[in-house]
Amino acid sequence: MASTIRVRATSNGEITEVQALIQHPMDSGFVKDAKGEIIPPHFIQQLTFEYDGKPVFLADWGGGISKDPYVKFAFKGGKKGDDLKVSWTDNKGASDSTTAKIG
């Protein structure tokens, strides 16, 4: 199965800039469907980026993050060719993870 996570991590030698795009409905639980029924909440709660065995960025999200979430951050260090591990879990207990190469 294709990963839900797309990551681009690029190092300029000093700082690694990370952009991630995740496929997820991010239903807040406040929206009604065409039949007027509430779409139950279904959203990513935690997203973690790990480099060299240590978290470099941790996100706690609510249903107020847009569908197919995007996030961008940067951290000091990170070498070209090294791995960056990304993982998420949602409020229904589903999860996904991927490992990207820093470019």
Partner: peptide, 28 residues
């Protein structure tokens, strides 16, 4: 935080030492 949203907190990020204190995201 979006004060007028039904749930006001949108995202909370932990920034370990060495991570740049800057974030971009898309909110509802």
């Amino acid at each position: 935080v979006v004060a007028e949203n039904p749930i006001v907190l949108v995202a909370a990020y932990k920034i370990p030492a060495g991570t740049v204190p800057a974030v971009a995201n898309r909110i509802k």
